[in-house]
Design a protein around this nucleic acid. Structure first.
Lengths: 64, 64
DNA sequence: ACTTTTTGCAATATATATGTTGCATTTTAA
DNA sequence: TTAAAATGCAACATATATATTGCAAAAAGT
């Protein structure tokens, strides 16, 4: 399933996938695939994304 | 760094590393290494552990 | 309309999470 | 204080997250 919460938080910060990717030290494709729900990212990467977007794990990666 | 919150939550539920591992479908070693802070687990595994232990991602995997 | 930026997709390569087995050590229980 | 259970550790094998490149399509800006 797509991660719409992540995409929304990224757009709220006015960042492109590529900019977010650079901030957290991964490739643009990795961010794109996480937003599309086609990847199972590592905890470290999730935390890095959260900190860049000023969110917590529950905010962006917890379902239900 | 060790994940003491995870270990504490597991012991609170009276589960051994092996029992938790079976519940979430990984090996005992994987659970042990996560508790020791020597692994960077996948988001899916983190969520499975949280649900088994009745916790959220922020409860067990968010620092500071 | 046209240009630029952003995003999706596919193929191949690499790093690392995870599995498996076996054994040593510590902890728990009798 | 001894046996059993739980945990740590190490080596090797496998699956998959992630990188890289290039191109196509869509979105945004002018």
């Amino acid at each position: 399933m797509k991660n719409l919460k992540l995409k929304t938080a990224r757009v709220e910060k006015d960042l492109s996938q590529e900019e977010l990717a650079k901030h957290v030290g991964v490739s643009r494709q990795t961010i794109g695939l996480i937003e599309l729900g086609k990847y199972n990212p590592s905890l470290k990467l999730c935390v890095a994304i959260c900190k860049t977007l000023s969110k917590t794990l529950d905010d962006l990666f917890w379902e239900e």
